[in-house]
Write a protein that binds this DNA or RNA. Structure first.
Lengths: 252, 252
DNA sequence: CGTTTGTTTGAGGTATGTCAAACTGCGTGG
DNA sequence: CCACGCAGTTTGACATACCTCAAACAAACG
């Protein structure tokens, strides 16, 4: 792996332009020079489509590549020995998947597409090669890994010490922020996952998720219609996250 | 940072021998050649002692180094904006601390010594230098980061879907296994942390921790005397973790 | 030895889980 | 195109695991 896939440009349909990809700021957060960004394109071996409901990979699969989401929506989950599932993350465009596989050369979680999805396949050897060939790519990739660690700290805080309402409020605000940073509306979006999957992610049962969403809806913080969510009072949600549960409005 | 601290060997008291360190298999899990292990010693700038109760670093501190624990015991914790603390990990000898800081060049959690502790200070620039200079060190360090991600997945499973008894049983078995792999007894050890800290880590209140430990003690799974724990029936604990709650023994 | 910090245990409350039933929207096939 | 079935959601009634508050106890610490 001394040169980076010199032959790929021969296959135009597979050739990807990172420098023109509007997801660039997500995959390549560091201030790389344009010249280096061009070289990043060589990391990508191919693209892959996954249909709704299908796995990108499963726990136990051999780890070979990191995936960058071009478009779509997926969930990661781990299973306990006795079959309980815990959703560990929801992924949207621009995010990287598969970092867990580096540890043992085997994936430790399932990743399932929640809608039809397309990913860039980045063979891990190429990432290692880039680390030694591209100035600063080392630091760049370590930051990506570290960022995931920090993200999970936040999730542990949520799971370990927040109430159902706080968890849901934090969840909605997080989604909102991520949609916004991708150019979508931060106030209206569609939940790609079921109530049960939200519940698993937040350490709650689906009935609790449903009830809390109904309560938010009743309190005019959001409007929910099935999967469609409209955030009406983001400030109110933020207040809930930080425990500022305001005096309850007297029920009529 | 092209050469690795050539002047440090002039300070014998600070000179550390990784190759003779009995924690080597923890800090250096990869099968590095002896020659490379020798070079690892150059990573360490100094050692640092932290007294019980004192911080190694705090959230917001500038990130400069990774720390390898030579001996002692510490906790990591994150705080929510409204002051709730979540313990995210307990650390013992041979483990690396500070990986969270890579992401933003600032630490995102507090690390406090729970007993007098001594750590090796490994400036992060030296790690980056090693990544480009030592064959395979790149992969090695990325594995360390990925392993932390995988570990946290397990913790999320615990926090999101396990009962108090299962959490405690998993916690005790995890400690037991880590003590054993360091050459200590896997059946008798001292808890360095308070019930409140265990509770924070496991998403429980200290009273619940205390009650569950008492129940385990009553059921002859363990013997507890304050901080001292004796694991009597590891198999029984394992059964609890995997949800195999056996028919309750009739209370006398 | 008194004070502080941590632990245990009890009584009672509550948030969330469990079980169940009705409802909705969607896709499939008649 | 309608009807059917299915997967997902909502809502209610009830159960319970865990939390809260409180008091007594134990250990550690100056």
């Amino acid at each position: 792996m001394s040169t980076l896939s010199p032959n790929l440009s021969a296959i135009p349909s597979l050739r990807v332009s990172c420098s023109h990809c509007n997801l660039r700021e997500h995959c390549v957060p560091l201030g790389l020079s344009l010249r280096d960004i061009d070289r990043l394109e060589d990391l990508i071996a191919s693209r892959k489509r996954i249909h709704r409901g299908e796995p990108l990979f499963r726990a136990g699969d051999r780890f070979e590549a990191i995936y960058a989401i071009r478009l779509g929506f997926l969930k990661s989950s781990v299973m306990s020995s006795d079959g309980r599932e815990q959703v560990t993350n929801f992924h949207m465009s621009g995010e990287l998947i598969g970092l867990d596989g580096i540890a043992n050369e085997v994936h430790s979680c399932d990743v399932i597409a929640l809608e039809d999805t397309e990913v860039c396949v980045i063979p891990y050897e190429r990432i290692l090669a880039a680390c030694s060939e591209i100035e600063d790519y080392n630091l760049h990739f370590q930051k990506i890994l570290s960022r995931e660690i920090v993200r999970q700290h936040g999730l542990m805080l949520l799971l370990g010490s927040m109430h159902a309402e706080e968890r849901l409020a934090a969840f909605l605000l997080n989604l909102s922020q991520r949609f916004e940073s991708r150019g979508y509306s931060r106030t209206e979006f569609v939940l790609r996952m079921t109530r049960a999957e939200i519940g698993s992610y937040l350490g709650l049962k689906l009935e609790t998720v449903s009830r809390v969403l109904s309560r938010f809806s009743h309190d005019r913080l959001i409007a929910v219609n099935q999967k469609h969510v409209h955030i009406i009072d983001a400030e109110g949600l933020r207040a809930i996250v930080s425990g500022q549960n305001p005096e309850e409005i007297i029920e009529e």
